[in-house]
Amino acid sequence: MGLTKAKKDQSIKLIITKPGSFTVDANGNILSSTLPLSVPDKFIEIIIHNVLETFLTARASGLIFEEVIIQFIGLKIVAREMRGGALIHLTPLKP
């Protein structure tokens, strides 16, 4: 079990090395960002989609949230809802 976990942790790739934030509107357009240009667009695109989807589907289930924190072993995503859009903060975590 311990070995499996260690092997799993080694497969973590830190796409971002420093914390950074960005804001998006309700349509998913980036309004401002402090992330370096080296961060892949697809990575940001999926985070935006997932964050907005999480807020929207929760609301559809009768749960209204203002903040969501998603914790992976190698990454922490904190998103605050802003009039349908969001302020998203990414922090790399060292496994």
Binding site: S11, I46, I64, E67, V68, I70, F72, P95
Partner: peptide
């Protein structure tokens, strides 16, 4: 929701999804 974020974690090798905290005024 869990599957959505797990699939993101797998795609970008972020490691295992540990928790998702969701905070609202009412719940």
């Amino acid at each position: 929701t869990v599957q959505l974020w797990r699939s993101f974690g797998d795609k970008f090798l972020c490691g295992e999804l540990k928790d998702i905290f969701l905070y609202g005024h009412h719940c």
